[in-house]
Design a protein around this nucleic acid. Structure first.
Lengths: 224, 224, 224, 224
DNA sequence: CATGAATGAGACTTCATTCAT
DNA sequence: TATGAATGAAGTCTCATTCAT
């Protein structure tokens, strides 16, 4: 999936890698703080997490966080930007290369779930935590979110135009339902066992239902 | 639909005094506080809302809230209990009467969306605000939520047994996807225009996709 | 000791005695509230006790307390007045009849300890609780307290004048020490087992030490 | 007398930073807060004192207090620990060196009163304020207090065994009476003028009475 | 007289943020 | 850059007191 850039996480690695300047941790502070934030936000939620919790988890002083982020809320925004925008970029960049609308829609499913597979905490942040800051939600996330939905709706629309998808459903509704279904699956996965491989299987099965559900149905309509 | 049942349950708990004068200020304090809580929680979120905001919106003194609820968190729990449990009750009580699994699944869609149609703020509380208290979410809401998912999964399972639904998908996955789709639709509806009638239309269209997506597909499987 | 008037307490009695007017508890409300106050103040202290605790213990409504007392603090003052002033009165009224200073001092010991014997909670109120309201302590209790000390000092002074007591100690110091010794004995008694009869024995032994300690000591002084 | 030992014990706990500049604002925060607490508690009592009053008197922010003490109650406990435990230590450490029981008992008087001479506010806190937190009193102070009483009783017991003291009084009663007398003297001194030197004189006179009161009395008993 | 639901001032405590080192 | 002690604004909740019934 080439999304290798999504690692760099698991800072435990960098802990022993960087031995260049012994007294200093060589600058990946920002990343370490974000990684720590994902972990503690996922565990306790945005409001129940204190900035000092993030600092402790990141192994930095409280004040250090404010050298990289202007506020606790900004930390959440940055999390969103750092991780999710890549998803959007992929969908808008890679997906169009796929030949059919069906494949593109299936690609969305694989993308969204595949991205989170193995990143349980990130999944929890995106499905639960992000909703915790109403301000962030309303002012910042909603526009991105709508852009994402629009991208999905475009795929559906194109599929309807090409005759791949049934024409009698609203593309925007489908987009919302698709996103919601993915979100619901992720949510229960994150809150529950989070079994490995489960999300991949889920994207396949969801694809089955969705794609056949969106198929033009001559039997039902033409039979009249 | 069944909106009548939404009146003043639980108020009996407050005291035996109620009902002296029929107008305002009658002992319906508990209900008034809950109504106010829905409004202000929906507007500002759980954490950004101060207890005194709820009090002001309800037209009572701050301390009065603590005569009916043990804490701010309990206020949210009570909201959940008062409004949502009825949904569960309906699904477990009314739905089984419907003859086919298809009709029962369609009933779930109509129920969940129909319940919130016209209650934009409640919808927002349930889809967004409820997730803001991680404690409440994990300790209280998750079990109810899983029970709800189970009820849906049971319907799917029965449909598979009766040959109404395709057997090659996990009932639990379907349940999550259905819930997620409904939640996603509600979320965008609540955060957006919240146009009247939109949710009813949505339940119809979603039913179209879902039911045909779940149909056994002889063409695809038998044709091999 | 003729202090029979000190009962009337143990309202349990009045509970079944007064059957004249069936619907009404016939007016001993004030006494019942004070009795309840002694009990709960002794148990939890003045500040940790809520007015509603007193009300519940007295079997009246919260508001009723304010028909008899102007404030929570006034409740404590009234307790003081109702119970302790009698002690002062006795000392100033009965004691002078005793012929010698020795007997009068011994009478003080018997009085103060005897009064509390069997009234463990009252003892705790006087030795501990009364000190809890700094305002009451400084504005109200101190003057009464000093009057009490004065009365004891007068006895000592008279004893010195008559040659019963050694002249080389300050009567006021003796008064304070006597009061303190009594208070300390009561305190540990009240905080501990509060064994019946213990206070009576204590007054005898304390008398032994005190009276011989106060005796003019020709052997020690004249022998030189 | 041994007043030097009253300086900054326990401050080591705060951090390793202290002692950079010798003037004010040096890391002696904990000590400054405790000093302020003695002053304001003595003036207004425990409950009437707000944490912000202590903060203002100490010249720190409200929140700073919670960097050194977990709660308002803990502030009072710490006061007790910081100042009083030394008394216990002295009595259990220094006193045994004195050759006779008489001298040891006299030492207790000098100790307890000498400790407070010149510390009027501390005296008030110990005799009055400490008793205001019933919780602290019952859970924390009583055990220490009983240990102190035991130490005194042991002295009396030894004196009885050696023939220095009369055998016909209970050592524990004597201990309580001694403590009470000292407490009573301190109380009136603290609430009154608190004249300098008064406590020293008091310990001498109290010693006179007590030691002769405890003397074996052949004249009274053998004369029979 | 009695009630007890309602009030609302005020306290304790938390924690995001700052800033001297 | 990094630190973390200090700050102080602000929120939840308690409880003495009131007053309509």
């Amino acid at each position: 999936m080439s999304e290798a850039s999504f690692s760099g996480r698991k800072t435990a690695k960098s802990r022993r890698t960087q031995r260049s300047a012994p007294g200093r941790r060589t600058g990946d502070k920002r990343a370490r703080i974000l990684d720590a934030a994902v972990r503690v936000f996922a565990k306790s939620g945005f409001y129940a997490t204190r900035v000092s919790d993030v600092a402790k988890a990141a192994g930095v002083a409280d004040g250090t966080i404010y050298l990289y982020f202007t506020s606790k809320e900004h930390l959440l925004v940055s999390l969103f930007e750092d991780r999710v925008e890549r998803l959007l970029a992929y969908i808008q960049g890679e997906l169009p290369k796929r030949p059919s609308a069906k494949e593109r829609l299936q690609g969305v499913l694989e993308m969204q779930l595949g991205l989170l597979e193995g990143e349980r905490e990130l999944a929890e942040v995106l499905t639960v935590i992000l909703r915790q800051s109403t301000k962030l939600m309303k002012e910042y996330a909603v526009p991105r979110f709508l852009a994402y939905l629009d991208a999905i709706a475009k795929i559906v629309e194109a599929g309807q135009a090409s005759g791949e998808f049934r024409p009698d459903v609203s593309p925007h509704l489908v987009a919302r339902a698709v996103f919601g279904a993915l979100d619901g699956i992720t949510l229960t996965w994150a809150l529950g066992r989070a079994e490995p491989g489960a999300l991949a299987r889920a994207s396949t099965q969801l694809g089955l239902i969705l794609l056949s559900g969106l198929e033009p149905r001559p039997s039902l309509q033409g039979a009249t």
